[in-house]
Design a protein around this nucleic acid. Structure first.
Lengths: 190, 190
DNA sequence: TTTATAGTTTACCTATCAGTACAAAATGCT
DNA sequence: AGCATTTTGTACTGATAGGTAAACTATAAA
């Protein structure tokens, strides 16, 4: 029983990577099988719900990661400005400077978005919300903080799109640096 | 002969819409056939290269649209600031406040990006380049103008991702307004 | 009115898709 | 050891994928 959970958990990162690289529809079961090293029998043993359950599990694991590494710090840090800087660096590493796609963002653009719409919505809602909390002290109004948060989250997603399209991690890094320094300047007004 | 060209041209917008909504892989031939009203035989008569040629034709037509409506004005306008504002409004309408996906951006994230990599790269390179030209007068250095251009193009793409994920055109409009007003403030420094 | 061409319909091809069934193995427990 | 459960490999299903072939219709110039 313990081994089951362990192997299922082990396969999640690989599963996530396949979905990131090929999308939901593009990730065929044979591709998944070959990437994870698990035969069809095993895959359907661990994920009786098939491909949809695989993706759902991946989304849950992504959610956990962001909750721990990004959202929680943003909400509870004694120094919001530092938490925001940490977020930028965390994100830069996580997305490999735009060489790694944001699976949730991709899913939102794709054909199968309706199937996972709540997970997608939750992910971005939570990101904007927690970032708003962290930005609040440096802003005049709640609304201003919220708009800045939207701007930043969109900036990150756009940086991924642009860097991927141009095949240039440098572009990603420049955009993130720009946003970071703008934030830094803002926090010094206080 | 004239009718052939006409009907092929007529089907391009429909074709583009199918690809936008379902992506390259998700747009099956039966879906394409049903959307355009053209049978498989007709489709392969107009596009002997199959699905790939259909997408290539769509990309070319998108390229033409952007060249005329966005890139050319940015490069030649007597008043760059006005051209930039016009770009924002054109883009807002074109992407229907984020309810319509950017096919090129989506393609860049997707599985089939390698197949159209040059078209994708050209599209974004050209956008950043021409926007840089328009931003140049309001910036200290060429590099600064270029970074601002990257920031804006990424911002637009990210606004699409975010607005789509949240199902909220308002978010798209707010992000565009923010970028527009930031640009406006900058141009008044002169 | 004949004839070449443009366009369309229909049937068919092979490959692959997600998913299922189930027996053969491993594995863990006593 | 023997037994029960978990885990896997294999072979299958029906549906659909992209693409092909050829017979057919419509058009319009010679």
């Amino acid at each position: 029983m313990a081994r089951t959970v362990a192997e299922k958990a082990d396969s999640l990162p690989l599963l996530a990577e396949v979905f990131r690289e090929h999308g939901y529809e593009g990730a065929s079961l044979s591709l998944i099988s070959q990437t994870t090293g698990l035969g069809k029998g095993s895959l359907y043993h661990f994920f009786p719900g098939g491909k949809e359950e695989m993706m759902a599990s991946v989304l849950t694991s992504i959610d956990h990661w962001f909750e721990e590494e990004i959202f929680h710090p943003l909400q509870t840090s004694a120094s919001p400005a530092t938490a925001i800087e940490a977020m930028f660096e965390n994100v830069r590493t996580y997305f490999a400077s735009g060489q790694r796609v944001c699976l949730v963002g991709l899913l939102g653009l794709s054909d199968s978005r309706d199937r996972f719409s709540t997970a997608i919505r939750t992910y971005f809602t939570r990101w904007v919300e927690t970032l708003t909390v962290a930005l609040r002290p440096g802003c005049q109004t709640n609304q201003a903080a919220r708009e800045q948060a939207e701007q930043i989250v969109a900036g990150i997603q756009g940086a991924i799109v642009l860097a991927r399209a141009l095949g240039s991690p440098d572009v990603f890094d420049r955009i993130l640096d720009e946003m970071k320094s703008r934030q830094h300047a803002k926090s010094r007004e206080y």
